[in-house]
Amino acid sequence: MQKNKMYDKEKVLAGLTIFVIIVTFPFWYNMGKAAPAPEIKLSDKAKAAKVCVAPKSFMTAEHMQILDVWRESVVRNKKRLYSSLDGKNYNMSLSTGEDSCIGCHVSKADFCDRCHTYASVRPYCWDCHIEPKENK
């Protein structure tokens, strides 16, 4: 029984070490360099409105969810009028009109990009939807 023998021990161990180093590279390379989490800057209009289409905690964490639900609803089911749980009505649109998302959160740079850049996510919304004028 040779069950305890390891073939090519040196090569295997060297390979494993290199593998572990490469895999963990981003962690030790960026150690201690973590940028502080960004603060969202609300527009005056958004501050004045006080409430969004859903509670703030939900919107912070799950806004992509609601955008997905909305796009199905608008594009496929003709339903474009949203009534929030506190009884307010909104136009279900990301980028068109005063009562759309961007109609209230008027600055893409302050509202969207801050977190997205930090989290290194690149949603393709603005490949098609027209971003507000302030960015131009």
């Binding site: 289409v53 859903a54 509670p55 939900f58 969810q65 609601i66 639900v69 909305w70 609803s73 089911n77 003709k78 339903k79 474009r80 009028l81 949203y82 009534s83 929030s84 749980l85 279900m92």
Partner: peptide, 12 residues
């Protein structure tokens, strides 16, 4: 769910 209801706009 904190998501409200969607409906067809009355003017549509």
């Amino acid at each position: 769910s904190p998501i409200g209801d969607a409906s067809v706009k009355p003017e549509a």
